[in-house]
Amino acid sequence: MISARRIRKRFGRLDVLNGVDLDVARGSVTAIVGPNASGKTTFNRIILGLVRADTGEVTVDGNFIDDDGKYRAKIGYMPQIARYPENLTGRDIMAMLRDVRGPGVVRDEELVDTLRLGPVLDAPLRVLSGGTRQRINAAMAFLFSPDLLILDEPTAGLDPISAGVLKEKIRRERDAGRALIVTSHVLSELDEIADRIAFLLEGSVRFDGSRAELLQATGQSSLERAIASLMGAQPPGPPR
């Protein structure tokens, strides 16, 4: 569904992405794994058009992303830190997003129920705790049944029950044929549900393959060790 080629991005003197190639297919969960500042979030935001790549190209369903932004109708985004106009309520924002997306979009409010958001939707966002905001954030990403979900550290700050609900939702959406990108720190429980792991380090993809392939390639028995070995081994050798 998504194809990114030779993506480069510098912020000032800092090379954040240094020629990234990545494809994301429907019906799969792609975990982008990497340490802090490895460029995961930047990559996500390039797909969304929030950040402009210096070079390289991204296509969504075969079309280059452009200024028009219509392709974003297919995307649901859950940012790592949700920043909302603070004096609006969750309900205001959901209404606003509905308004912007226009009529005729299939709505999926399942998470509003399963994440128990009913009681907090009418409070201004600024009074809500980080975890609660994160739950609202998750519900909004899934709200319009998008074909592609970009979830940036989705379980960070969530209580175990909510994290479980979210993981379950992710599985079901994958099974329904949607594409999902999940970024996480080096180690995350979400790696378990990933069909594919892309390991990002210092701006480039150091490994791209299934979980089994990763274990095999590094000769390690656990994912944790496999990744540690990728980070420790400089250079790790071309994994692909």
């Binding site: 392709y71 974003r72 940012p79 909302y84 603070e86 997003l97 912007v100 997306r101």
Partner: peptide, 16 residues
């Protein structure tokens, strides 16, 4: 308006 901008630009909204 930063937050608002960020929120809306992740939606199918043109920048201009």
């Amino acid at each position: 308006s930063r937050e608002f901008t960020e929120l809306l630009l992740a939606q199918p909204v043109r920048r201009d």
